[in-house]
């Protein structure tokens, strides 16, 4: 199934790859690691074969051609002289959603021409789901567990009933905001038709909107929330937990943030960094490309409605 030829593999490395980002690692580091592992894998496939053309900045070169070179005459292509055939600078790779340092979960990378798809996914503002863990009773200066505790409070008065009430109020406020942010007169026919379609996406990529927020687990001071949202970022989610704590007449801080879904990609599709080898990456690219082909609107949005 997987080609045994580095040139064929290189030519197949196009599209989206879905990886798992652990907490306490930067996206930049993951990108560097992924590039390094792919290039290392490619260089090990067939060590004695030469490929042309191979000049600096071949990132846009479409196809590689296999070519035999007489090594006794021309030493320029000798692996000890020219270095590895697949240079890390030649592989373009960009992320489509940025996860902060403390966030773990699904991360999409675009490889070579897939960087374009990664950009479209980002600009089309697809929805994401998060699972956030928090603790009542302590507020930290960063809002996350690694910060210094700056305030302590009681939390035993908080019952699941209060919790649900405040969360549904928040969700309702966000739904109202969602229609306001669409930039349409609320009394018009168009606004009615839009509302009939269901939730809609904001016009701006800077405004975080929450579509669904619910508590899935509440034990002792610890709780877990599941949030469906758009345009969010790590500090926003951390701030949200803090706000929930304050509204419940207590304090709270985050202990874990995990992205469990990004448009149609979820944790089952994500590759653990241990599995980053050529075979798995190529399989993952094929799978992600299939998902993108099945759901065209991820790349090409025609409607404002949330899908």
């Amino acid at each position: 199934m997987v080609a045994q030829n580095a040139a064929a593999m290189w030519n197949a490395l196009r599209g989206i790859v879905c990886v798992y980002k652990p907490a306490e690692a930067s996206v930049r580091k993951l990108r560097r690691d992924l590039i390094m592992k792919i290039c290392k894998g490619l260089n090990e496939v067939d060590e004695n074969q030469y490929y042309r053309p191979f000049k600096p900045h071949t990132s846009n070169a479409t196809e590689l051609i296999q070519q035999s070179v007489d090594r006794s005459v021309d030493l320029r292509d000798h692996p000890l002289v020219y270095g590895p055939k697949f240079d890390e600078l030649d592989l373009s790779l960009s992320w489509s959603n940025f996860l902060g340092w403390n966030t773990s979960g699904v991360l999409l990378f675009g490889l070579r021409s897939g960087t374009q798809s990664a950009r479209y996914i980002r600009e089309n503002r697809s929805s994401r789901a998060y699972r956030i863990k928090g603790v009542f009773g302590q507020a930290t200066d960063t809002g996350f567990k690694n910060g210094k505790v700056v305030e302590r409070s009681t939390w035993r008065h908080i019952k699941p009933f209060h919790f649900d009430k405040i969360l549904s109020a928040m969700q309702a406020a966000h739904q109202k905001k969602m229609f306001e942010m669409s930039g349409i007169d609320m009394q018009s026919q168009l606004a009615y038709e839009l509302a009939a379609q269901g939730p809609i996406r904001p016009i701006n990529s800077k405004l975080p909107i929450i579509y669904g927020i619910k508590c899935i687990d509440y034990e002792g001071p610890e709780f877990t929330l599941e949030i469906q949202c758009i345009n969010e970022y790590e500090t926003y989610l951390v701030g949200l937990i803090h706000e929930i704590g304050v509204r419940l007449h207590s304090t709270a801080h985050c202990t874990a943030i995990k992205c469990i879904r990004h448009s149609y990609f979820n944790l089952d599709h994500a590759l653990l960094s241990r599995h980053w080898d050529l075979k798995n990456i190529l399989q993952n690219i094929r799978m992600c490309n299939r998902i993108l082909a099945e759901n065209e609107h991820v790349l090409k949005q025609t409607s404002i409605a949330l899908r």
């Binding site: 600096p56 021309d74 030493l75 320029r76 000798h78 002289v81």
Partner: peptide
């Protein structure tokens, strides 16, 4: 590119 200076003069 790293490697190209020596590559240009090795022959």
């Amino acid at each position: 590119k790293q490697g190209s200076v020596f590559a240009s003069s090795i022959n």
